[in-house]
């Protein structure tokens, strides 16, 4: 298979560039992955229907993907898509939605579409807030997060969207981030091939809003990379052991003071451990301490426990978001069941 340059995908699948997405927005990356997945599957572009709601993610297909697109009312993409898919089941129907659009106002349609197990692939872009409208709390915003509608910390708790949709009955459920482009592209192929309701949550960088939410004071052109690195640091892939032996030290107050304290302590005990500041989705800006092996890690953990500037020591995977494919099942598909209804009714 000849390797295709990005220009190939742009010319064949993308339109109306440049998009209005902010620099470093995950939406463009997801569009990139989607074009590759469609190309890899060799789908007939004339029979793809992309349906989207209202929000930044809605613009991924509408207008930027070159297929039939239906840009609907806020939260209702899946209901519109259901009507189109039922009436013309030859269509490959893909719904692009956001965490607010899909699990906030659209939550009811999300769980019912999953319950029906209708052959529709839903790609939910989770940027942890209502980005287009200014960065308000979303059903996925972390507890305590500061957004423009939770200036004193988010009092709510987020959904685990994958478990929610799996419980509702989806037969393919996966979660990736916009960093994991190879896994995400393959997952999109699997989702589209799945004859039933497929759901992919993509945790996505949103430099404009997340810069404020996470307090990243860097110059604007550094923020996308900093968020991307945080997504890598804060997630792990199901079934894969973490590379290396490390833990995190949560500073009691300033991260700088904690870093110095830990460095001097490590230096005094000359334990071959490296310490650096990292951003963690769950714990915030903390210290990551990497050790040569498991024994060193145990002794480092003990040592960190005694450093006054360190409030708490956390294990490598603790508080991280699990990525991967959570559900792969076979169950009767909704449109097939409707055809069975038609047969029993003696219809055409």
């Amino acid at each position: 298979m000849p390797v295709k340059p990005l220009s190939y995908y742009r010319e064949r699948y993308i339109r109306h560039q440049p998009s209005p997405f902010c620099p470093g927005c995950g939406n463009g990356i997801i569009l990139n992955c989607f074009a590759r997945a469609v190309d890899e599957l060799g789908l007939d572009q004339d029979r793809i229907l992309c349906v989207s709601g209202i929000g930044c993610s809605a613009w991924i297909p509408s207008p930027h993907f070159n297929s039939d697109t239906l840009h609907t009312t806020h939260g209702r993409a899946l209901a519109f898509a259901t009507g189109a898919k039922v009436f013309n089941s030859d269509l490959t129907v893909v719904v692009f939605t956001g965490d607010g659009d899909g699990a906030g106002i659209g939550g009811n349609h999300l769980i019912h579409a999953a319950r029906r197990n209708i052959d529709i692939t839903t790609i939910l872009v989770n940027n942890l807030s209502y980005a287009m409208t200014g960065g308000q709390i979303a059903p996925t915003t972390l507890h305590g997060s500061r957004t423009i509608t939770s200036p004193y910390g988010n009092p709510e708790n987020p959904f685990d969207l994958c478990r929610l949709v799996a419980a509702a009955g989806a037969t393919y459920v996966a979660r990736w981030t916009a960093y994991h482009v190879v896994e995400l592209t393959r997952s999109m192929e699997e989702a589209i091939k799945n004859r039933g309701f497929s759901f992919i949550e993509v945790i996505s960088p949103c430099p404009t809003r997340q810069r404020r939410i996470f307090g990243f004071r860097n110059p604007i052109y550094e923020v996308p990379s900093r968020i991307m690195e945080m997504l890598v640091e804060s997630t792990y892939i199901r079934g894969r052991e973490p590379k290396g032996h490390y833990c995190y030290a949560i500073p009691r107050a300033g991260v700088k003071e904690a870093l110095e304290a830990v460095e001097t302590e490590l230096g005094r005990r000359d334990l071959g451990a490296g310490v650096r500041q990292v951003d963690h989705l769950r714990w915030g800006t903390v210290l990551r301490v990497d050790c040569a092996g498991p024994e060193e890690l145990d002794s480092v953990k003990e040592l960190l426990g005694e450093v006054p500037e360190v409030e708490r020591v956390v294990g490598a995977l603790e508080g991280k978001v699990e990525l991967g494919v959570f559900v792969r099942e076979r169950r009767p598909e909704f449109v097939e069941s409707l055809r069975e209804v038609m047969r029993r009714a003696g219809g055409v």
Partner: peptide
């Protein structure tokens, strides 16, 4: 090319 959100690099 994989990570470019704007199809700008080839």
């Amino acid at each position: 090319e994989r990570l470019c959100p704007d199809f700008a690099i080839t």
